[in-house]
């Protein structure tokens, strides 16, 4: 399931990058319909946990592709256009989270789950910071709006989602992986 070659880019990465992207797109759309609490423009996007999971399970390339293409797909399906900086920010989120892949030995071990959450939160920070800061130059926002109005709510919302849903996904994946034997 995990060959530990962090930067390898072969058939596995192409397929899981595509599946991760499609899942991220579908779940971003689907979870829009569920009543999750939001304050101001703080929103919770449960699909982010799936993106971080794909990064952790299949590596940084898969995380990058799933985030970039998945966000593009989600925006396209919603009819919102193409915002390259937010797509790239989502890609970076998956890429940084994917750096944990070689460190994970057992997907249901507490230590490995905590490592994945740590890298996931770092990924959220890097990705959302990139998207928010580039929005300053593209959208002409000031630093205050970019950091307080964009970055902070996105970071908090996504961190909560990762901390809650990523362990569940990893434990379920451990069971599937052991059944499949690969």
């Amino acid at each position: 399931m995990n060959d530990k070659s962090t930067w390898e880019f072969g058939t596995r990465q192409v397929v899981y990058g595509a599946i991760g992207a499609a899942l991220y797109g579908v779940l971003s759309l689907a979870t829009n319909y569920f009543p999750l609490p939001a304050a101001g423009n703080v929103t919770f996007r449960p699909a982010v946990a799936v993106l971080i999971f794909f990064g952790a399970a299949y590596g940084p390339w898969v995380g990058l592709l799933a985030g970039f293409i998945g966000n593009t797909l989600g925006d396209a399906a919603m009819g919102w256009g193409f915002y390259w900086n937010w797509s790239l920010g989502n890609g970076l989120m998956g890429l940084v989270a994917g750096l944990v892949m070689p460190l994970i030995k057992d997907f249901k071990a507490r230590g490995d789950i905590l490592k994945a959450i740590g890298y996931g939160v770092a990924g959220v920070a890097v990705g959302m910071l990139f998207a928010s800061v580039t929005e300053k130059f593209i959208g002409g926002l000031d630093w205050n709006t970019a950091l307080v109005g964009y970055f902070t709510p996105a970071f908090i919302g996504n961190t909560v989602v990762v901390a809650i849903l990523l362990p569940v996904l990893m434990i379920a994946f451990a069971a599937v992986a052991s059944r499949r034997g690969r």
Binding site: A22, L27, A30, F53, V168, L169, A172, V176
Partner: peptide, 18 residues
């Protein structure tokens, strides 16, 4: 609320990995 989304998300994600 987030945890209760698991019964929807987990089956789809795991099936897609297979």
């Amino acid at each position: 609320r987030l945890r209760r989304l698991a019964p929807l998300i987990i089956p789809v994600v795991m099936q897609s990995t297979v």
